[in-house]
Design a protein around this nucleic acid. Structure first.
Lengths: 249, 249
DNA sequence: TAATTCATGTTATAATTCTCACATTCATGC
DNA sequence: GCATGAATGTGAGAATTATAACATGAATTA
């Protein structure tokens, strides 16, 4: 019987944590790290498809690459990923070099981080762990993180200090995401503390831009954080090449 | 003479575009795609370091991870890694369930995170990105992070809010690392802002424990953050099975 | 206790990838 | 036309990685 905390499961967890920053580890390094044979590493990964990728002789974080041949190919990848990336491409046009921007949490805006050119100088404020991880590698980005208590559900930090910090920052552009959006009701998200951060940021930032893929439209989540009219722009993957829609300008 | 739009440059551009979506292509696929031999693909990539990554037999997008770096970094870390892990094992005995602990930055105490049993309930305060990443996976750990501006050199965040937050926390045990330690001079680290955090934490915590491997002893770094006598215990990989040394108890 | 199962390690072998030296092609200039 | 040099291709052997079969050992069950 496979218990919850079996040796294998622990190894997988540890490996995933190890690769969280987007590093690749050679199988020999993994073998030493986990103190098991290389054979076991291979078997672990084969038997947990989807959790980690394997490429050549290297273990790589999942979701980063989709090798065609590798036996890790599980394609559980986000169906909306392309849509999200396109939306992010368009949203990025609202950002100019040397500005201070806020990047919200969620799977949508993570895509934006990769799209920031390496030579673009920016100050980026975030409160999601996975966003910070990726931003940490950008050479010309000054990363500011809001601290607090960690909420695994959204991979974010939250606390009174975070809220206080926000108002002390000068944010030019806030890029916000939403789990649901409705023109009549507004933008909603799933977690209360998330909403609190978003509201505070929106009150501070000069320009507020909602970045969503169209699958979010019409959906409703538990916490409303902004009216439709409070955004300076709403960007989706279908937003044209113009400066996109300005429902409230 | 290699012009800007040479065949090679064009291939590189095409490849980069192809891999932009985060896919990995096997070298044989690339060879067919670009209609050149596999040898040429290898040479192209070797001669354009930084543009594309190469891993096993696959061409991968660059920027997200550093295959070679991580490999060599791991090898370098391996030298003292066992020592560090042993020191952390011993240090962990100073921590009891339900307590609030502080975990310092650096390669030593990262090892400690993995050693925390999954069923141990703890509140952990940290300010290093890589420490947070690993802690985020622990089911019974309440993670508190100090926010601020990111410093790549030590992968930590620092700012006035961080310092203010520390004094508002009730920390039972502070596990501190040092880049250098000398019984006469005390504990030193390489970065000024790091020292500031350490000092503030030490002023707040009930028990301060220095965790170092013995290679640190005798070394001196630029910033002194604590006298030898200000620690309640100093733990190294050689610390015995007793409750370890108490130089200042 | 013996039988069974499962996870892991070991070994040998197969398949793949890497490197090197050398051959070929192509463009350029004399 | 010929020489030159850069870019590319080819093939053999070395090194690495993958696979499969078997061995070990611990935990489980009858």
């Amino acid at each position: 019987m496979a218990r919850a905390g079996s040796a294998k499961a622990q190894r997988m967890e540890r490996l995933q944590a190890e690769l969280a920053q987007g590093r690749a580890l050679h199988i020999s390094a993994v073998s030493k790290l986990l103190e098991v044979s290389e054979m076991t590493v291979r078997r672990d990964i084969q038997q947990n498809p989807g959790k980690l990728g394997y490429l050549g002789g290297y273990v790589v974080p999942r979701g980063m690459f989709e090798p065609e041949n590798s036996y890790t190919l599980d394609m559980a990848a986000d169906q909306q990923r392309d849509a999200k990336r396109r939306a992010c491409e368009i949203a990025l046009r609202h950002v100019r070099a040397e500005e201070t921007i806020f990047i919200d949490c969620g799977t949508t805006l993570i895509e934006l981080v990769d799209l920031i050119p390496n030579d673009m100088r920016l100050t980026v404020v975030c409160y999601a762990l996975n966003v910070a991880e990726r931003l940490a590698h950008k050479p010309n980005v000054t990363l500011v993180m809001l601290g607090g208590v960690y909420y695994p559900a959204s991979a974010t930090f939250f606390g009174p200090e975070a809220l206080a910090t926000i108002s002390s920052l000068g944010i030019n552009v806030a890029l916000l995401s939403a789990a649901g959006f409705d023109w009549a009701r507004g933008a909603t998200c799933a977690h209360f503390h998330e909403a609190e951060i978003k509201r505070k940021v929106m009150a501070t930032a000069s320009r507020n831009i909602l970045v969503i893929d169209t699958s979010k439209i019409g959906r409703l989540r538990s916490v409303l954080f902004a009216e439709s009219t409070s955004f300076d722009a709403i960007v989706t993957e279908l937003s044209g090449d113009e400066t996109s829609q300005h429902p409230a300008s």
